[in-house]
Design a protein around this nucleic acid. Structure first.
Lengths: 192, 192
DNA sequence: TTGGTTGCAATGCAGTTGTATTGGGATGCG
DNA sequence: CGCATCCCAATACAACTGCATTGCAACCAA
């Protein structure tokens, strides 16, 4: 065998360039040559690692998903064993929020991908399954195992993310909204 | 003066075609010729009514915004004078939710535009102003004029919309989440 | 009728798109 | 040392993009 090149590393390297382009100029500016230029490589090389543009896009989407999951599990692991449910919820949801400028760039990319997938619903069943698990998990942390409240909480986080991206809410406002909601959910059954 | 043609009507007619294309194939499929074909007119005519593509996009975005506002005010007007605050809130937010297939198509377009604007934040200040007014309005309907709760409620609606578009939540789930949240917000201060 | 203004279609053009193809180095195994 | 295998660059190509230009038909005012 000739040269040994870490295939996956090159691919993620290209995917990173793609995300940079998407964050700054939107998904419609993502082209083979553009991404190649951003990555500082030749267009032919991009083609070598992704036979088609769609393959590149799919890979990039998987990368952002994996990164997000990694960030969440890391943040949760940092809480130590047997964390307080409320704190766990707060960490989980807070980590997913696009707070700060870097995270907001990632969020813009994720949003672009969301709109992209909305028209190509090939992975819809998987997506549905994933959120169902999320809701189930969040519900298990809430008093009374309230899955409706969990669904609302997840949606709240998503919506806060949207308004953060649009610059309509500040980080503080979003966190305040999240925390007061957690207060409501945990205090409600304290009294009952 | 020669022929009399309702300029605005033609423009909205073209914008409708644009939205159909965007809803079915995404914003990146929106091109002069594509939109023209969908509208059943010549490409030259589209150029006649919109000197540039960006002008066409901007106009289309305004149309969806105006339509949404019209739907909301109509739904609210149907409540009659001096409506119950809770019912008003519920109507307001429920109308903005992409329930049903038609509304969901509109929602996909709105989502595409959102991602589009996220990269071209030219109207960011205006957007911020609009949501600030929304939050203020919603807050005035809540017990205690709670603006943080109002911001959360708006975000909840937005997030529910996202999950509805993705097919992760059913209409019933979204409405249940919305209603239980309204319950929480109105019951909380009934006791205090 | 004449003239001018407007509505619209057709075509041209330079640039970009995704993809296929070609070819040449580099590399490591036999 | 061959030499097959892989990495990557270059180019070609048809399709498409947004936009400018041109031309013609319809219409109204004079």
């Amino acid at each position: 065998m000739p040269k040994k090149v870490d295939h996956r590393e090159r691919r993620t390297q290209i995917a990173d360039a793609l995300m940079r382009v998407a964050a700054e100029q939107g998904l419609e500016a993502v082209s083979l040559r553009h991404v190649a230029a951003e990555a500082g490589v030749s267009a032919g090389m991009v083609q070598h690692y992704f036979r088609t543009k769609d393959e590149m896009m799919t890979f990039a989407m998987d990368v952002v998903k994996d990164r997000n999951e990694a960030r969440v599990t890391a943040a949760i692991a940092a809480l130590g064993p047997d964390p307080d449910p409320r704190q766990l919820l707060r960490t989980f949801l807070g980590t997913l929020l696009p707070l700060g400028d870097d995270s907001r760039a990632d969020g813009r990319v994720a949003l672009a991908f969301l709109a992209y997938k909305a028209v190509r619903p090939t992975t819809a069943p998987q997506l549905r399954e994933e959120t169902a698990q999320m809701v189930s998990f969040l519900g298990s942390l809430l008093p009374g195992n309230d899955e409706t409240a969990a669904a609302g909480l997840l949606a709240l986080m998503e919506g806060l993310g949207m308004y953060l991206l649009g610059g309509q809410y500040t980080d503080e406002q979003a966190l305040a909204a999240l925390d007061t909601q957690l207060d409501r959910l945990f205090k409600a059954t304290d009294r009952s």
